[in-house]
Design a protein around this nucleic acid. Structure first.
Length: 264
DNA sequence: TTCCATGTTCCGCA
DNA sequence: TTGCGGAACATGGA
């Protein structure tokens, strides 16, 4: 799940549930998710603090606490958040559970251990240190800036747009959608694009991510004509019914329509 | 049992 | 410097 649209959903979910309540206890079920940060330290630094606001950059969610300390949540491939009441059962794949003074719980859960929960004093510094490119939906990313990001690059579209140091937020699922809607083969190289292609890609990226975020990244709720709900080998292309091709790029499965996206 | 999976990172090679 | 393929991480679902 967790690419930009999913994380935007987690952000809204957290905004609507766990904010403005003091943390009574932080319970770490699997310390490996902390990536070296001692669990005791995490608990101690958050005890008595409240979660005040959220901010997202790419696939990372930052939660400001009342101590000017930020919680950083990265969801890997299977991470998600859940908020539940006093009597709720701890979810099976809980990794970190925050208990608030009202007895409710916020849980970071993940089947696999590919995500991270950590702390930072400064989200901007964190983004810089992680060498993340601009957030794919941020205001500052204008069409001109987008074109600049691509200039001088020679890599394939698929690899370039999933590279978080170029542009933060797009992963292996949504890059397929973007390239499908832009009518571009994932194997095309950035330096083969003309100005129109670049301008179109910019508009498509912004639209696709906004639309999917608005629908909670739920494939079932996407408008007709989206590839994501048909993202399987030989499924009919939502535009022309030609079988969708499954190929491998950058070691990942890539789905595209040979007819709508040129080349094949 | 085998294969595959929405992420990231490291290595070796071009 | 850039980019690619492959492997690794850890675990569950089909």
């Amino acid at each position: 799940m967790p690419e930009l649209p999913d994380v935007a959903g987690f952000e809204r979910y957290l905004d609507a549930t766990g904010l403005h309540r003091r943390i009574e206890r932080t319970s770490v079920t699997d310390e490996r998710i902390l990536d070296g940060l001692p669990a005791q330290g995490l608990g101690r630094r958050l005890a008595g603090a409240a979660l005040e606001s959220t901010r997202r950059h790419g696939k990372s969610l930052f939660v400001r606490t009342s101590r000017d300390l930020w919680l950083v949540l990265h969801f890997g491939m299977t991470g998600e958040l859940a908020y539940y009441g006093e009597d709720g059962e701890t979810p099976r794949h809980a990794k970190v559970v925050w208990t608030f003074e009202n007895g409710a719980h916020l849980v970071y859960q993940s089947r696999r251990l590919l995500g991270r929960v950590t702390l930072t004093d400064d989200p901007e510094a964190f983004v810089e240190q992680q060498e993340l490119g601009p957030d794919a939906l941020c205001e500052a990313l204008t069409a001109d800036r987008f074109a600049e990001l691509l200039s001088g690059r020679r890599g394939r579209l698929q690899g370039t747009f999933t590279d978080q140091s170029v542009l933060a937020g797009i992963g292996n699922v949504w890059v397929d959608e973007v390239l499908f809607q832009a009518g571009l083969d994932p194997r095309v190289r950035v330096d083969e694009l003309d100005e129109d292609d670049v301008a179109r890609l910019y508009r498509v990226i912004r639209r696709v991510l906004r639309v999917s975020a608005r629908h909670g990244a739920d494939p079932a709720k996407l408008p007709r004509g989206y590839l994501v709900p048909r993202r399987e080998a030989d499924a009919p292309c939502p535009r022309c019914r030609h079988p969708i091709a499954k190929t491998t790029l950058g070691g990942r499965a890539t789905y595209s329509c040979p007819r709508c996206q040129g080349g094949g």
